Simulated scan of single mutants.
Amino acid sequence: MTKQETQIMKGVAILLMIFLHLFNQTRNVELCESFIYIGNMPFVYWLSAATSPVSFFLILSGYGMHFIHVKWKVKDTHKWNRIAKLYLHWWVILALFTIPSFVYNGNYYTNCSSVINNYTAFNTSWYAEGWFLFPFVCLSLLFPLLFKLTDKFRVGWVLPVSFLVGTCTSFIVSRYGAQYLYNNLWLYNPFLIVHLAPSFIFGAMLQRTGFIHKVQKKCNSKWLWLALGGTVIIMCLTRTAAWGPLYATTFIVLFLSAPRWLWIDKVLAHLGNHSMNMWLIHAWFCYYIFHDLMYSLRYPLVIFVTLVVVSLLCSYFVNAVCSFITIIYHRKCQNTK
């Protein structure tokens, strides 16, 4: 998987993320005017089950970090820069969306521990959709140890064990609910790291085996789109998160191996470059601030496209602010030398 292909799949993943958060709740889809129904529920509700965006992002991250692991056997010299950049964007987005609200009606910033928890992402109570951030940072720091462990075993052992771990943790979530674990964050976050690790490892094994490149060399047929459609249908029917890593892996392999129009790749790659920002932005509009306005657009396609465009435009602004802060920081560092 090339860097361009990684960005393309990140673009797919963020579209899946936005679609999931728009249409996976019955109270929201009931506000929409849909043309296609399956039973009593709109088609978009059923289709939201075939998203699993967290698994996509983790597989792509695991793929990239295993490449770094292979390239930099001794030390990854850029991991702290990557984490600092991620947190900078998170802090800017939090400031942009919470400070105006605090000034206007007094929400947020009224409790010191809450401020610390949210800005470290240890507990993203202000923006629940950012729950992924802290365990992802931990995986980003732990990946050299994790991959040293997996490198000792054959892929044929690593993948089934990882899938079993993911299935067990998914069962715990479905049986007891995330809220049960959430009441104890010192248990919740380690659990999330274990729960997310299988997708991360699946991505690493894709890089280790070069499986995507092998499939691309042997298969480049339009029939792969039919296979991809069948995979999506199976996921919609089963509606279980336990299949997340396997489903996302299959989707990535089929999508990158199937023939595509060049302009689609360009659009997806552009979205992929903004995917993390869009993840941390979009729910402010569809859940927290402009929920009623967003769903007043009525039609699912119009709502979806609008939220994608608004999130992308906000991402441009966030990048500009982060670039300005980075320039100021570097200038100050140079002046102190």
Rank of each mutant, 00 (worst) to 15 (best):
F23R: 05
D76H: 02
E30M: 14
K71E: 15
K71W: 00
H66G: 01
H69C: 06
F43M: 13
L20D: 04
K79V: 15
V29E: 05
P100E: 01
P100L: 03
Y63L: 14
A49H: 13
N40K: 13
K75S: 07
N24V: 10
K79P: 00
F97P: 13
N40D: 14
L96V: 15
A50G: 07
T26P: 05
F23C: 10
P42A: 05
F43R: 01
P53E: 04
K79A: 06
E30V: 10
T77W: 01
D76F: 07
F97R: 09
H89V: 10
H69V: 06
L47Q: 11
D76K: 03
S34I: 03
L60G: 02
T51H: 01
I38T: 12
H78Q: 08
L47T: 12
S61M: 14
S61L: 13
F56V: 03
N24W: 11
L88Q: 12
I59K: 05
F57L: 08
Y37K: 04
P42S: 07
K79D: 04
V54I: 14
N81D: 09
Q25V: 05
W46F: 10
N40W: 06
V44D: 09
V74T: 11
I38F: 12
T98Y: 08
F97W: 09
A84Q: 09
K71C: 02
S52L: 15
H69D: 09
W91N: 10
C32I: 08
M65H: 06
W90K: 04
T98I: 03
F23P: 09
V70G: 08
H89A: 15
W46Y: 11
K71M: 06
Y87N: 02
G62H: 02
W72E: 10
K75L: 09
V92A: 11
W72P: 00
M65N: 08
G39R: 02
E33V: 12
G39W: 06
L47W: 08
K79Q: 06
I59N: 01
G62S: 08
T51D: 14
K75D: 02
S55Q: 08
L88M: 14
T26A: 13
E33T: 11
W46V: 02
R27Q: 13
L58T: 07
I83Y: 00
K73T: 14
L31D: 06
N28T: 14
R82P: 00
S52Q: 15
E33Q: 12
L60A: 04
V54Y: 07
S34T: 07
P42Q: 05
H78F: 03
E30L: 13
R27A: 12
I38Q: 08
K85R: 13
L96Q: 06
N24P: 05
Y87L: 10
P100R: 00
L96W: 04
T51N: 10
I36S: 05
N40F: 07
Y45D: 02
L94H: 13
C32G: 07
L31N: 08
K85C: 08
I36P: 04
K75M: 07
H78W: 00
M65L: 15
P42T: 06
L20I: 03
C32S: 11
W90G: 09
D76I: 05
F67V: 08
F23Y: 09
V92R: 02
P53M: 04
L60W: 05
L96T: 10
P100K: 00
I83F: 00
W72N: 07
S34M: 02
W72G: 00
F67H: 12
